[in-house]
């Protein structure tokens, strides 16, 4: 488990009616850890009632360690984390963040990178620019968004990419034809996609249809929904029974009840929280377990019980 870093909010900028940008500076010392593009930090947000842990991609440059920059979109069905950041967080406030982690790393050995971003899913790409130290890949970016409110990101990207940026504004009827875009790519292109599940699935599907190997398709699902119907969990070793509420993950419910489970990414990717599942139908929302393992294990950071059934864990 990683130690947290304490930062203070140095500035808040309104990028769009529902998007705020936060500049975070270290409280101790003058430098934050450097990071790889695609990295995110997890903010620990306390409001009067709850603790929220929300992940946000770093949009600042990895070469400027004086601050981190994140963009927070207000989620309409927010449990409270983004709402708190938008409505209650002020310049000068302090908070704890995790050190950067990256489950969407860009490979160094790519000849061409095709970047596809949907909506707020553009944020992990922002830290790729400006490019330093001679990354030689040819970059071509396609940015799909609803309306003008995303304009702040567009101008930054246009400065860096010029004609290599193509924008698709849905409110003006502009659509990205994923199949055609992929079919035009030279052999050896790697595609990186981040945005709504629909967009990612479309890219993955088209890439498969065109025979792209899996190793060339990189995606970050930009918010694995960890909520769902409440259910209960029985812990085999202690006999205890724990209730998981609809707006908390199984991992959080375990922690809330004093049950320590090793964890790291909270996104179903890294494998750290793998727990033996003794009984009960699980709804697996992770990207880690092999199919053969799914009857015996569960990743509590994202997965839940199916149909509100009871799960029995080897804890």
């Amino acid at each position: 488990m990683n130690e947290l870093l304490r930062v203070s909010v140095a500035a808040i900028n309104q990028l769009a009616p529902d998007i705020k940008e936060f500049i975070l500076r270290p409280v101790v010392g003058s430098e934050l850890p450097a990071f790889s593009p695609g990295s995110h930090i997890i903010l620990e947000i306390h409001d009067a009632k709850n603790l929220y842990r929300n992940a946000y991609s770093l949009t600042s440059s990895p070469f400027d360690r004086s601050h981190y920059r994140i963009a927070v979109q207000l989620q309409q069905d927010s449990r409270g984390g983004s709402r708190y950041l938008h409505q209650a967080m002020s310049v000068g406030d302090q908070l704890d963040i995790s050190p950067p982690n990256n489950y969407f790393a860009f490979e160094q050995y790519n000849k061409k990178c095709l970047l596809i971003a949907g909506g707020i899913g553009v944020t992990p790409f922002m830290s790729l620019f400006p490019d330093k130290c001679g990354r030689n890949a040819d970059i071509d970016m396609h940015y799909v968004f609803r309306d003008q409110s995303q304009a702040a990101f567009v101008s930054k990207l246009r400065d860096q990419l010029g004609g290599r940026l193509s924008c698709y504004q849905r409110s003006q009827g502009q659509r990205l034809d994923v199949a055609r875009l992929l079919s035009e790519q030279p052999l050896g292109t790697h595609v990186y996609v981040c945005g709504p599940e629909r967009l990612i699935e479309d890219v993955r599907h088209q890439a498969t249809m065109l025979g792209w190997p899996e190793s060339t398709v990189h995606f970050e699902k930009f918010a694995v929904a960890t909520n769902g119907a409440p259910f209960s969990v029985r812990l085999k070793k202690t006999g205890r029974s724990i209730k998981v509420a609809e707006d908390e993950s199984l991992l959080d419910a375990l922690h809330r009840n004093g049950v320590e489970v090793r964890h790291l990414c909270r996104a179903g990717v890294c494998g750290e929280c793998k727990t033996a599942l003794l009984q009960g139908p699980a709804e697996h929302r992770d990207l880690y377990l092999a199919d053969a393992e799914k009857s015996e294990f569960i990743m509590p950071c994202v997965s839940r019980a199916r149909n509100a059934a009871e799960l029995v864990l080897d804890l």
Binding site: L182, S183, P186, L187, G188, L210, G211, W212
Partner: peptide, 10 residues
């Protein structure tokens, strides 16, 4: 030639 091989070539 590599620019002419379509993605998905084996």
């Amino acid at each position: 030639q590599v620019v002419r091989f379509p993605a998905g070539s084996r």
